[in-house]
Write a protein that binds this DNA or RNA. Structure first.
Length: 104
DNA sequence: ATTATGACGGTTC
DNA sequence: AGAACCGCCATAA
């Protein structure tokens, strides 16, 4: 898997399309690319996600990656992403914040 | 080649 | 709600 791999470019392309305050799940992105390889999306983010709004890519649980949940929270507050603050940390309101690149 | 692991997801219990 | 399982595919050992 190198940066030139089409899958990588497509993933990064989709992520860049996500508007501020909105989010997309790993599986969602994989689905858009006609795949179910949500893990590959995660891998791509881990390797090449440094220069895209990675915090807008979350898990289907409505929580950002465990490693960066604190980091992501700052961005969410900054962008006004719909959050559902609960006792055990917080989670994104997927019902409202979920986004799809269909309308482009 | 085989096994384990990972910024994951969905189903089942 | 939480845990166990299986599916997915690239990488590392």
């Amino acid at each position: 898997m190198n940066p030139d791999h089409p899958f990588v470019e497509q993933v990064l392309g989709v992520v860049e399309e996500i508007p501020a305050g909105r989010v997309m799940t790993y599986g969602g992105i994989a689905a858009v690319l006609g795949s179910r390889a949500s893990r590959q999306v995660g891998q791509v983010m881990a390797r090449y996600g440094s220069d895209v709004p990675w915090w807008r890519v979350i898990r289907s649980d409505g929580r950002p990656p465990e490693c960066h949940e604190g980091r992501a929270l700052e961005h969410y507050r900054e962008e006004g992403t719909p959050l559902r603050t609960a006792d055990a940390g917080y989670r994104i309101d997927l019902r409202v914040a979920a986004w799809s690149p269909h309308a482009l």
